[in-house]
Amino acid sequence: MNNIPQYNENEKQIMRSIMNFIKNFKVISALKKANCYKESGIPVLSIFFYLLQLVYTKKSMYMNYQNGTNHPGFAKDVVYRFLNSMYIN
């Protein structure tokens, strides 16, 4: 019986596509115009990329933290504060 890898080639292609989208359509400038920025710590683009990656790979943040796969390098509280910020338009 073979184990199915959690992180396959399809997911790598999806992440490359997301990064190309972010660069080609200048998403970072759109985030700045929407008042979405941080003064210190993890860059907003990293958090936004992680959230897009979760959506398009059909994974949950909870399972990523539990399994230790694709650990983003920041705590889940950072993501929750980003999503719940009342200053982002």
Score class of each variant (00 low, 15 high):
N3F: 02
I4A: 04
I4N: 04
I4S: 03
P5S: 10
P5D: 05
Q6I: 03
Q6K: 12
Q6A: 12
Y7V: 06
Y7A: 01
Y7R: 02
Y7F: 12
N8Y: 01
N8K: 08
E9I: 10
N10F: 02
N10A: 04
E11A: 06
K12W: 05
K12G: 08
K12Q: 10
K12T: 13
I14A: 08
I14Q: 08
I14Y: 07
I14T: 13
M15F: 12
S17A: 14
I18V: 13
M19K: 13
M19P: 00
N20Q: 04
N20D: 02
F21I: 06
I22N: 01
K23W: 03
N24D: 15
N24Q: 14
F25L: 14
K26A: 04
K26E: 12
K26W: 01
V27C: 08
V27N: 01
S29T: 14
S29I: 07
A30P: 00
L31N: 07
L31I: 05
K32Q: 14
K33N: 15
A34C: 14
A34N: 12
C36M: 15
Y37H: 15
K38L: 09
K38S: 14
E39T: 15
E39G: 15
S40W: 11
S40A: 14
S40H: 15
G41W: 08
G41K: 09
G41M: 09
G41R: 10
G41T: 08
I42D: 06
P43Y: 01
L45H: 02
S46L: 08
S46R: 06
I47L: 04
I47H: 01
F48W: 07
F49W: 02
F49S: 09
F49M: 06
L52V: 02
Q53I: 05
Q53T: 14
V55R: 09
V55I: 13
Y56D: 00
T57F: 00
T57A: 03
K58M: 06
K58C: 10
S60Y: 00
S60V: 00
S60H: 02
M61G: 11
Y62C: 05
M63V: 02
N64V: 02
Y65R: 12
Y65V: 06
Q66V: 15
G68A: 06
G68Y: 08
T69V: 02
P72R: 06
G73E: 07
F74I: 12
A75Q: 09
K76H: 10
K76C: 03
D77P: 04
D77G: 10
V78Q: 08
V79Q: 03
Y80G: 04
Y80L: 13
Y80F: 12
R81K: 15
F82T: 09
F82V: 10
